[in-house]
Write a protein that binds this DNA or RNA. Structure first.
Lengths: 227, 227
DNA sequence: ATAGCCCTGTCGTCTGCACGACATTATATA
DNA sequence: TATATAATGTCGTGCAGACGACAGGGCTAT
C-alpha cells in the first residue's frame, strides 16, 4: 500500500545534529566541551524546570515521559546514543512539561539554547536542520496518534516492533534482531496498552513463530510478513 | 491543578505569521500578492501531492485530515481565518500525507517554500517564529495524544469544548459562546469518539444545564465549572 | 411544495482490553 | 548461596464505548 511503502522512508530519517554541533561547539567555545554524567534513575529535568537546554545523548538510555494527575507515569519515548531531547526549548517551551530520566549510567552533552541560537544565527543550515528535526518529531507523533486511536492493541504492538526494528534493529537475512532491555511494562507504556496484554500478544507471536524474544533481545523472523 | 492553570497559556499562543509574511511578500515580490479562491469541498491538496507550499487562510474554513486504509476519514483539525497549514513542507515533508479541504467558500494565500526559505534567510526572526509555530503544533499534538489515550470519551469532549471555547469562543460574563457549524460527526472525529457518544454526552451536559447548543452555536454556561 | 439527504436522538448488543489476583521465574542484592 | 525484588505468564471479571438499526427533524434543491 502506498502509505507504508512510499512514505516509509521519511519516518526513519533522522537529523544527526551531533556531528554538526559538537565540532562547532568545540571550535567556537574552545575546549569547554561539557559532559554530564548521570546515574541510573537520575532526572535530567523534571516538569516545571526551566527549559534552558537541549541535550545530546553521548551514552546511555534516557526515558522521556510525564505524569498524569493521578501520578501514573506515561513514557513517550526511550532514547539512546546520538539522539537528542529537550528540543522543545528551542521552539519556545519555557518550562518543562515532561521529564527526562536516565535508565542507566548515562553521559549527556548539554547545550544552552542561548549557545544554540547563536550557532543558528551563523549557520543557516543548522537552522533548517533543527526545523527538520522538530518537523520529524511532529510527523512521528502524528503517526503514533493515529496508531493509538484507530488500531487495536495487537496492531499497535506489532507496529511498534516494526518501527523499533527499522530504527534500532540489525538485519541479518530475513531476520531482524533488536537488542533491547525494554520490559513488557515499557512496551505497554510506549504502545498505550496494559502490561498483561503485551505479554499475551508477544507470546502469541512467539507461538506462531513470527518472533522470538528473551530478556535481552527481540528477534523478528520476517519483518515484511509480521502481521 | 498546576498542569492546567500554569500551563494553560502556552496552549493558546499562536504565532501570527500572517502579519509578518504578507507585508514582506508584498514588499519583496512587488504586487504579486496571490490569492486562490476555493469552492466548498474543493481540495487544496491531497495525499501524494508535492508539498511545495504553505498556506495562509484569508477567509473560510479548512479541514485538515487524512484517510485510513479502509477509506475512513480522520479529521485532525479545522482551521479558520488567520491560521496556517501545510507548514510541514518547511520541515522537510516532500509529499503530502494529509489533505486540506475547503469546508465552504474560502480564500487562501499560498507561499512556495522557496519563497519562504528566501525570506527566512534574510529574516532571522521569521525563522524563529516558524520554529516556534511548529513547536507549538508539536505541543498541541502531545496534549491531544494524552487526552485521546488516557481520558474517557466524556472528558475528551469536554476538553474539546473548553479548548475550542478558549480558542474561538466569545466570552460574555460567565458564558462563552462558540459560533460553529461543527456537526456531531465532526466533533466525534476530532475527539476520537463515535457520533452517537458525542450526541449523548452533549445532551447530558445540556440536561445538567452546563451547556446549551443548537445547529449554529454552542454556549458554555461557566467554563471553569464545566466538568 | 416535495423529494431526498444529512443531522440528531435513542435503543440494544457485542467486544476489546484494562485491571486485579495470583503463580512462576529471572535478576539484583545482601 | 540465600533472599528480596522485579519481570513474566495466565486466569476471570467488568465495563466503556463502538456500532448497527431505526425514527424523527431540518436543510437544500428543483
Amino acid at each position: 500500500m502506498a502509505t507504508s511503502s512510499a512514505a516509509a522512508l521519511w519516518y526513519f530519517e533522522s537529523v544527526n545534529l551531533y556531528h554538526i554541533l559538537c565540532p562547532h561547539k568545540v571550535k567556537k567555545m574552545g575546549d569547554k566541551h561539557e559532559f554530564i554524567r548521570y546515574k541510573k534513575d537520575d532526572f535530567i529535568y523534571v516538569p516545571e524546570d526551566a527549559a534552558s537546554n537541549i541535550y545530546l545523548i553521548v551514552d546511555g538510555r534516557i526515558k522521556i515521559g510525564h505524569y498524569l494527575e493521578d501520578g501514573k507515569e506515561v513514557v513517550s519515548s526511550i532514547l539512546t546514543t546520538g539522539e537528542i531531547f529537550g528540543e522543545l526549548a528551542l521552539a519556545g517551551e519555557d518550562t518543562r512539561r515532561d521529564f527526562a530520566q536516565a535508565m542507566c549510567e548515562a553521559v549527556i552533552c548539554p547545550l544552552t539554547i542561548g549557545e544554540l541560537q547563536e550557532l543558528m544565527f551563523e549557520n543557516k543550515d543548522l537552522s533548517f536542520k533543527i526545523l527538520k528535526l522538530i518537523g520529524l518529531r511532529l510527523m512521528k507523533l502524528e503517526r503514533k496518534l493515529e496508531l493509538l486511536v484507530f488500531k487495536d492493541a495487537r496492531t499497535r504492538v506489532i507496529e511498534f516492533l516494526k518501527d523499533t526494528a527499522a530504527w534500532k534493529g540489525q538485519r541479518v537475512g530475513f531476520e531482524t534482531m533488536i537488542p533491547t532491555k525494554l520490559t513488557h511494562k515499557d512496551i505497554a507504556s510506549l504502545t498505550g496498552t496494559s502490561r498483561q496484554t503485551v505479554t499475551t500478544i508477544l507470546n502469541e507471536l512467539k507461538e506462531k513463530n513470527l518472533i522470538n524474544f528473551d530478556r535481552k533481545k527481540i528477534l523478528i523472523r520476517d519483518i515484511d510478513n509480521l502481521k
